[in-house]
Design a protein around this nucleic acid. Structure first.
Lengths: 345, 345
DNA sequence: GCATCTCGTCCGCTCGGGTTC
DNA sequence: GGAACCCGAGCGGACGAGATG
């Protein structure tokens, strides 16, 4: 740090006191427009800007929020983060991004550091372990935490979207097309969201008086680019006598793998099998067969989370007061779903 | 901030001075193992951790780096960011992520704030305007800046990869397969990287004694999911008498659109037209026809950028000393390229 | 003389009571 | 009696000279 020029230097140059310079930068009322303009001009000329740490220390806030996510592999995350960062910036906040790797301990270290003066509040897609929940609840008593998921034991506000309605829209769409054998394909790691969507799948088919159930669970060891091979073996293998006519994938990524697997086994989508996903990631619109899926508005998700956080920061909401906001997803019908082949003959 | 417990409280409880507590947390030598252990234990019990702003102010550093990128739409970015954040974390740094939207002014505000005590150094994919360059050069005299691109006028260290070699590998691959009519498809916005790749395309074909040149430039107004429609009109329209047998796309995303367009016009990839991309984003391995592309190792890119930054931070490198590290990409041959149809008859 | 710890100063800024015209 | 400004006390920790055993 050469070039160090501080508030005192500017004060001296402007011929005012330190406090006045401070007031100029903090948009406070008790300063004349003229003085303020002059000070800002001088600051610009001398390339001065108030030091962030000092300001943070004196104010007891950082104007910075923390974003903690397990990884960025699913395009959903970057889109989500973009929205959060945008909303944060709009309110004068910066965003500290930290990747937990889905690891309890890593997450714990990140949260500790964040909670002690690194950020004013946290938006996170947390790990689902008991230890993680304990930690989040504890951090939430210190600085506000908004989770992008909501599950048992978590005592933090949350913004999420309604999995059940998403699943319902997709299933009703498929059943409406005439499908009676709809399978569910779930990812290797079992998370809360997976169970939630499966439960919805089960119950909604129930309400639609459909008996068929089939849950294909992907093996955990698969190489991310080879998932479709396992999908193929699991579902389309010729020895499988009871192939579903439609497949509800846990998310769009898996759906793409399902389509690829189908193709590899000579099945046409949607002619031989319909496929639907979840999330509407940008790629699903341009996949070889554009994917029918369910869309949650990331912009709104991000904005809502940020707004919830802001209200806690402004003390409009107390830490004991938990808010759970649930957004409604929308069905996006594309070409990967159609009436089952048998019906069309 | 309720719950506020400071270094003084811990000192009092432990029966030592403030300085000793500080030393316990800073791994300094002049403190006995026993005292240190005791202090850390007490801190843990009382849920204490040194305040980040105060520490930053006293030390004159934040242990935080800034990452500034135009957007996260291309999956390349999140992968890049993941690598940087990982490397940063490894060295005890947090990462502040800021999205510039490719906008000069936004970038400028971000950099100003970052340069004044918000972070210790910056890794960025900068805008390419004159104003942006001026700003970066100026910021770089205050805190170290490492760019993930390198272009004229920029006086910052950089880590990038060799576009020319990437293009060369792809072209030699295509020409080796027998292609004589290879077109280049470039994105709407014209950036430095586009010209660099086009220049490489031109010169390398020259050196391979191939005359054919064709640059399809995508219109700027296209909806991100509809790019392929424009590609189709541009390239595969039946009135186009001189359709190339192979297409070199600026990046994988465009390549995917090219493949989709080809399909829409009844052309089979690679039977009727070969397609190659750039970047090897995760999706290109699972697109309907897996894409031939060129791969740069993000892990290395991120790590290298972080290491370069660290050396500046440790004063091993002076700000006047510019380092430009150029990584070599690797060819990844998949199924989207093959010998041209005519040859195979 | 050495390991270990204490003390006072400083980092750069905000804030609010007090002062000035 | 305001509007505009000054002043001094923190904010929580780092650090180095000096004290203690």
């Amino acid at each position: 740090m050469t070039n160090r020029i501080s508030i005192d230097d500017i004060a001296k140059i402007a011929g005012v006191s330190r406090g006045t310079v401070s007031r100029a930068f903090n948009e406070r009322s008790d300063i004349s427009k003229k003085t303020r303009a002059k000070i800002l001009e001088i600051s610009r000329k001398h390339n001065y800007f108030p030091n962030n740490s000092a300001r943070g220390l004196a104010k007891g806030k950082t104007e910075c929020i923390g974003i903690v996510v397990p990884d960025l592999r699913n395009p959903f995350m970057p889109e989500m983060i973009t929205a959060i960062e945008k909303a944060a910036k709009k309110h004068g906040f910066s965003a500290l991004l930290s990747i937990s790797d889905g690891n309890d301990e890593t997450q714990s270290k990140i949260l500790t550091r964040m909670a002690f003066g690194q950020v004013d509040g946290i938006i996170t897609t947390p790990c689902e372990t008991a230890e993680s929940i304990r930690m989040l609840n504890s951090v939430n008593t210190k600085i506000p935490v908004v989770c992008l998921k909501n599950f048992d034991g978590l005592r933090c506000s949350s913004v999420s979207y309604n999995d059940r309605i998403g699943v319902q829209q997709l299933l009703e769409h498929l059943v409406g097309l005439g499908h009676m054998r709809i399978a569910f394909v779930s990812p290797p790691e079992s998370q809360w969201t997976v169970s939630a969507r499966y439960a919805a799948y089960d119950e909604i088919l129930d309400s639609l008086k459909i008996k068929y159930r089939k849950n294909y669970e992907l093996p955990p060891d698969s190489n991310p680019t080879d998932i479709w091979k396992n999908v193929g073996k699991l579902i389309f293998d010729s020895s499988n006598r009871n192939i579903p006519t439609a497949i509800l994938a846990f998310d769009d990524i898996i759906a793409v793998h399902v389509m690829k697997a189908a193709e590899a086994y000579g099945k046409k989508v949607p002619h031989d099998v319909s496929v639907a996903g979840f999330d509407n990631i940008s790629f699903s619109a341009i996949s070889s067969v554009p994917l029918t899926t369910v869309c949650v508005n990331r912009e709104r998700l991000g904005e809502t989370a940020m707004e919830l956080l802001l209200r806690r920061l402004k003390d409009e909401i107390k830490s004991e007061e938990l808010h759970h906001i649930v957004l409604i997803p929308e069905l996006v019908v594309r070409s990967s779903t159609a009436a089952p082949h048998v019906l069309r003959k």
